[in-house]
């Protein structure tokens, strides 16, 4: 089993919470994990990416090779396209639809979604809306994780345990709403694919 995941977004959007939940879930399940992050200058509103690799055998490289990613999870639609060369032929792109516009030459949104729709395997969703719907507007990244979960060979039960571990310090209420957000994203993706 392996899951090579590209996580994309803009500095400040907190993409690492997705990685943290998967990391907490898998590390002591007998799985190996490597997770390359972007720190430093780009965190000031620049493009950020994380390479998350999970496998049941020891992982060599911290970076995913081109054309080998099983999923791109992006919390911003234009950013989802920036890493397409990493996506494998059979890979899935899961992206948030909500635009983050902090540059003057941001492309027209129709063009962005036009490019996304050219792909064979993709899911696009409004993660902010789904998070608000479950009553935790801060949980949009867990919605994204949920929407990606059908394409990751790790059971939802284990991922939910990881989410619980990451938010455990903030109390039960926060844990539960994040798990709900995860489930809502998962439902959305499952329906979307039908």
């Amino acid at each position: 089993m392996k899951a090579d995941i590209i996580l994309a977004g803009v500095g400040g959007q907190g993409i690492l919470s997705i990685a943290a939940a998967l990391g907490a879930a898998t590390l002591n399940e007998g799985l190996y994990l490597k997770q390359a992050e972007t720190h430093g200058m780009s965190q000031r509103g620049g493009a950020v990416v994380s390479h998350l690799r999970i496998a049941d055998y020891p992982i060599a490289s911290d970076l995913i090779p081109l054309g080998k990613a099983d999923i791109i999870i992006s919390v911003e639609p234009m950013e989802s396209l920036r890493y397409l060369p990493y996506l494998s032929e059979t890979g899935f792109l899961v992206t948030n639809e909500v635009i983050f516009e902090n540059i003057p030459n941001y492309p027209l949104s129709e063009k962005i979604f036009g490019e996304i729709k050219k792909l064979t395997n993709f899911v696009a969703l409004n993660a902010e809306q789904l998070a608000r719907d479950v009553g935790n507007p801060k949980a949009s990244n867990m919605v994204m994780l949920g929407a990606s979960s059908p394409f990751i060979e790790i059971s939802s039960e284990i991922i939910e345990k990881g989410i619980a571990k990451v938010f455990e310090r903030k109390g039960n209420l926060v844990v539960n709403s994040n798990i709900e957000a995860f489930r809502s994203g998962k439902d959305y993706a499952t329906k979307y694919l039908k």
């Binding site: 509103g45 970076l63 054309g67």
Partner: peptide, 30 residues
């Protein structure tokens, strides 16, 4: 990157998709 090393060994990365031209740079800012 692993891809650079692959190329040096005569292996080609299986790249299926290109970055669409519309994707703009997003540099850091104040």
């Amino acid at each position: 990157t692993p891809d650079h090393v692959g190329v040096a060994l005569g292996l080609r990365p299986p790249v299926e998709y290109k970055i669409p031209e519309i994707v703009a740079n997003r540099p850091p800012s104040l």
